[in-house]
Simulated assay, not measured.
Amino acid sequence: MNSNVMNTQSNEKQPVLSRKTTQVLKLIHFTLGKLYLALPIESVYKILNRAPVHGSGMNQVGVTHSGEEDITVIDLYQRFFKESLPEAAKGGGYLVTMQNQIGEIYGIPVAEAPILIDVPLSAIRLLPESYRRSDTVNIARHVAVIPQNSGTKTIFLLDVELLLPT
């Protein structure tokens, strides 16, 4: 008899290896001034090299073109800090684009390349409604609190549906 067949048909129970798995959320992380911001990877459409933004310059919304697409650009730096992006950051940079529920594409200009990070779900917290109504970062509903050597790092998780001012 073939011993390989005998082994595969055996009723012996194999030991089950127990592994502790941590559920994580994949985020695209970037900085804006002194703020740490992130978007869930599912929300990100593309990351592009920054192109000229057209508009009146009177508010934080403009438009740029990428191929055949027109992208609404939201200058969060101007929105949060009430001033234009520092000159040093204007020359290059990236445009983090995302798509909302109705399919419209938005972009956020950032000075440095965004990075992909894994954040344990246990590190994500809901922001209090009173804070959201009072602070300039009212477009975030959650934060990720990440332990660091020197304390903690708080990353605001942006909500794509809240990006455009009403």
Results as ranks from 00 to 15, higher is better:
Leu126Tyr: 13
Tyr94Leu: 06
Pro15Val: 00
Leu158Met: 05
Leu116Cys: 11
Val137Gly: 07
Gly33Thr: 07
Val24Ser: 11
Gly151Ser: 03
His65Asn: 14
Phe80Asn: 03
Tyr45Met: 01
Leu17His: 00
Glu161Ala: 06
Val143Ile: 09
Gln14Thr: 00
Ala113Gly: 15
His142Met: 11
Leu37Met: 09
Ile146Cys: 06
Asn149Met: 08
Leu126Val: 15
Lys90Gly: 06
Phe80Gln: 04
Ile74Lys: 04
Val137Arg: 03
Tyr94Ser: 06
Leu85Thr: 15
Gln23Pro: 13
His29Lys: 13
Leu157Ala: 01
Ile139His: 09
Leu121Gln: 08
Gln9Cys: 12
Gly33Ala: 06
Leu163Gly: 04
Glu161Gly: 09
Val16Pro: 00
Leu158Ala: 03
Leu157Val: 10
Glu129Phe: 06
Gln23Ser: 12
Val16Ile: 01
Leu127Trp: 00
Ile117Gln: 08
Met1Ser: 11
Asn59Val: 10
Ile117Val: 12
Asn11Gln: 14
Pro120Gln: 01
Pro147His: 03
Gly55Thr: 08
Val145Tyr: 11
Ala88Tyr: 05
His54Arg: 05
Asp70Val: 11
Val5Lys: 10
Asp118Val: 08
Glu104Asn: 07
Lys90Thr: 08
Glu104Trp: 03
Arg79Thr: 12
Val16Arg: 00
Pro86His: 01
Val137Met: 05
Ile47Phe: 06
Val53Asn: 05
Ala111Gln: 09
Ser84Met: 04
Met58Gly: 12
Pro147Asn: 03
Val5Ala: 07
Thr97Trp: 08
Pro147Asp: 01
Arg132Trp: 07
Pro86Arg: 00
Leu158Phe: 02
